[in-house]
Design a protein around this nucleic acid. Structure first.
Lengths: 182, 182
DNA sequence: TACTATGATGAACTCGGATTCATGTTACTC
DNA sequence: GAGTAACATGAATCCGAGTTCATCATAGTA
């Protein structure tokens, strides 16, 4: 995998990504590089050795999250293939997205604010494909609204609650549910 | 009204607010004061004569929008009192919010990003009151989901599409509609 | 018209955060 | 255990956006 990197460098890279995510979530997208460095117990220069730019760092953090989500979505599709009802897995998908709302919210804003046009094709494409399969399966079995598309879901999700409170997320899911069913 | 202001000053104040709104919508919340000043054909110092801080300027712009929305909501309640179906007026309310999506999105981000805790009580309270009346009326006549609250609506709306495209907004409304009905 | 208080101007200043780089340190190789 | 390339450090630098203020212009007034 990521060989050709010295052991400590690999460790530090991971530590930087973790800390950056935590800091962005806690203090918003405007955390300074120095603050991230402090929180990570490293020097600023080290951040710049791994990420040439603050934008690059944020992009890496966001990409990581998108990959996690894509993994979860593929797993959900796996369960649908194994017999789990598509509508339930779709619901679980929404839960996951919204549970990570704090992250996604802050990070989305971060990516928008800091980066220029940012996209992470590989993971996004994987996730989209899995989601499309789930939706189609649900429509075939009549448990998901006929005209629902992946784009629709992203429209709903992209806009999910930015609130951290658990009851807010649960209420949002409850409100949204009728949108998914026939 | 706003007397005790010289005529040209009043003109400029208005021009600043308009330009600031336009610039924020077009270039995001990070437009510089100088850019706004240029676009308005004024000098930076003039902006600072009217608004001691960039945050104050943004707050003024946001407040203006909230007031517009509150007016519209009160008008909608007026129509309900005059016999218009509450569910339709609620839908119209959503349309208005979403039509101003570009504004609201950019400005909301702006207020969050720039300001500290920002609230504009007077207008917000007016709007909320009117909205509550509309919802209650709809529930009494059985056309609006029994457990829908003002908070729910804000949850859906606060999260409306940030996209400028008309078809995106229309699709969002279409998706959301089932959430409102019994 | 002359007067003055209010308003406008924009170059200069401030300040904080991103980025650099000369220097010191450490993990790997033989 | 040298030797060396990779890596870490953090004070110094750069840069851009917000803000100030000495100066000029003008609307309102007598």
């Amino acid at each position: 995998m990521t060989h050709s990197l010295r052991a400590d460098a690999r460790r530090n890279r991971a530590r930087i990504l973790d800390t950056a995510r935590a800091q962005i979530i806690e203090h918003g997208p405007n955390v300074g590089m120095s603050e991230i460095a402090n929180a990570a117990g490293l020097a600023v220069g080290t951040l710049y050795r791994h990420f040439p730019t603050k934008t690059d760092l944020v992009a890496a953090v966001v990409t990581e999250q998108v990959e996690r989500l894509a993994d979860a979505t593929e797993a959900a599709w796996g369960r649908v293939e194994a017999g789990s009802p598509a509508i339930e897995e779709l619901y679980v998908f929404l839960c996951r997205v919204v549970e990570a709302a704090a992250d996604n919210g802050a990070l989305k804003v971060a990516a928008q604010t800091l980066g220029t046009e940012f996209a992470c094709p590989p993971a996004a494409v994987r996730g989209t494909a899995a989601l499309r399969k789930i939706i189609t399966a649900g429509q075939d079995s009549g448990s998901i609204r006929e005209d629902l598309t992946v784009t629709d879901l992203y429209l709903l999700v992209a806009t999910g609650p930015l609130d951290h409170a658990k009851h807010t997320r649960e209420r949002w899911l409850e409100l949204i549910r009728p949108c998914l069913m026939p």
